[in-house]
């Protein structure tokens, strides 16, 4: 027989929940999270922003990359409570309007960079930050700057093309 526990549903964990107020994709959001909850988990589970993905959960793959106060970070290595009062941008916040694509996202598609797609949100966020910091990167600079974002489909050359194309597009704009 399957052994059933006598207890029913109960609070999340022994850690007390903390209220965190933050700005996510330009909107004020409030989350209630235990202290050990990572920003990645909170974005996904509390705010239903599932564009940021979980793979290694220790900062090695970049699938969870978000922008925190203007800088790219791996959200698996940030506690949600640390985001109090800070500004977070996720992949969902990059397109000009819901249902649209940013120029960079368009170039990812055009270059054939999107295969299984699981790493792509993190790649797009990292590439966006790269271009903001360096609007005309060389191929070597793109490879260096993006090397924290793993892609097992190995779309690496495609992504380099997409970043170059976006840089050219922005320079011409």
């Amino acid at each position: 027989m399957t052994t059933f526990a006598a207890t029913g549903p109960s609070p999340d964990h022994e850690d007390p929940a903390v209220t965190v107020s933050t700005t996510v994709n330009g909107e004020h959001r409030t989350m209630s999270v235990p202290a050990h909850r990572t920003l990645l988990e909170a974005l996904r589970d509390q705010l239903a922003l599932t564009g940021s993905k979980t793979c290694c959960a220790e900062g090695e793959c970049g699938a969870c990359t978000v922008i925190l106060d203007g800088h790219p970070v791996t959200s698996c290595l940030v506690l949600a409570v640390e985001a109090e009062g800070r500004e977070v941008t996720t992949v969902e916040g990059l397109a000009p309007q819901p249902g649209e694509l940013s120029d960079l996202q368009e170039e990812f598609l055009a270059a054939g960079a999107v295969q299984c797609g699981f790493c792509i949100p993190g790649q797009v966020v990292a590439a966006e930050c790269l271009l903001r910091a360096n609007p005309t990167p060389s191929t070597a600079e793109i490879r260096e700057g993006m090397s924290g974002n793993l892609c097992r489909c190995a779309s690496y050359e495609r992504i380099v093309c997409a970043v170059h194309a976006t840089a050219e597009r922005r320079a011409g704009a």
Binding site: G59, V73, T74, V78, L130, G145, S147, G148
Partner: peptide, 9 residues
């Protein structure tokens, strides 16, 4: 040390 994202933290 790590990636750009790691070095930002």
């Amino acid at each position: 040390v790590g990636s750009v994202a790691i070095r930002n933290r």
